[in-house]
Amino acid sequence: MRDKKSRVPGRIFLALIYIFLYAPIIVLLIFSFNSTNSRTVWSGFSLRWYEKLFNDDMVINALYTTISVSILAAIIATVFGTFAAIGIFNLRRRWQSPVLTLNNIPLMNADIVTGVSLCLLFVASGTILGFGLGFITLLLAHISFNVPYVILSVMPKLKQLDNNLVDAAQDLGCTWLQAFFKVVVPEIKPGIVNGALIAFTMSIDDFIISYFTAGSGTQTLSMVIFSMTRKRVTPEINAVSSLMFVFVLILLIIINIRSSVQDKKLRAKPA
């Protein structure tokens, strides 16, 4: 549409930004295969850091904690958030907006404030009820910062939902519950899936809130990485990061393929 010359400076700017974004990651990936423990001097290809990683109990335990807390928190937050969104959607207007404002607080608040405030809550209630910081408090913290994301991604789908569909289903003999699971849930499913994915990635990536709510006995991968950067700095961290990056990349590719297949199906439908 516009002449191509005027696009050149923009293209150069784009290229520079992408170099800025990816240079550190590429360096990190390359040095995970370094044969010595230097992060800046290349001395040959080796897989020793990957080997070391898989024999490091602390890392394996942390990986297990991270994955289990992320999956559990994502599932619980998705179910809880979906029902909560349906409830909030049906609240009276007057009540809807204050509830949604309250829902936004954890999203807007600085992570460190959410972290310390939950830490104080858990410590205070723990001394009364007799429990300490650990996996359960970590899980509760993750659920509480995940639910708002689920609600925000389910809400728009509920607004798009045609109420007549539910009435039609009931007129055609569905019970209330059947109408819910056969009509409402499939209609808002993209929002639910999206919310679950956001919740899962938020949990995997979280460091600050976990750091304040997990206590000293439980460690997520992020917490292990943080303590590694403070004490011993070896390419083992590079190996962890490379694996996590590749894992997420594969996850993203799968999601993209899935959604483009769905798009095609949707487009094929009317024809």
Binding site: L14, I17, Y18, L21, Y22, A23, P24, I25, V27, L28, F31, R39, T40, T201, I204, D205, F207, L221, S222, I225, F226, T229, V233, I237, V240, S241, M244, F245, V248, L249, L252
Partner: peptide, 25 residues
């Protein structure tokens, strides 16, 4: 192109920051 801007966000936040250490030392 937008996905490429977002992709680094899926790398752990600590690791992204740590990556700069070996560049800036």
């Amino acid at each position: 192109l937008v996905l490429l801007v977002l992709l680094p966000m899926w790398m752990n936040f600590l690791l992204r920051t740590y990556a700069w250490m070996s560049l800036l030392e």
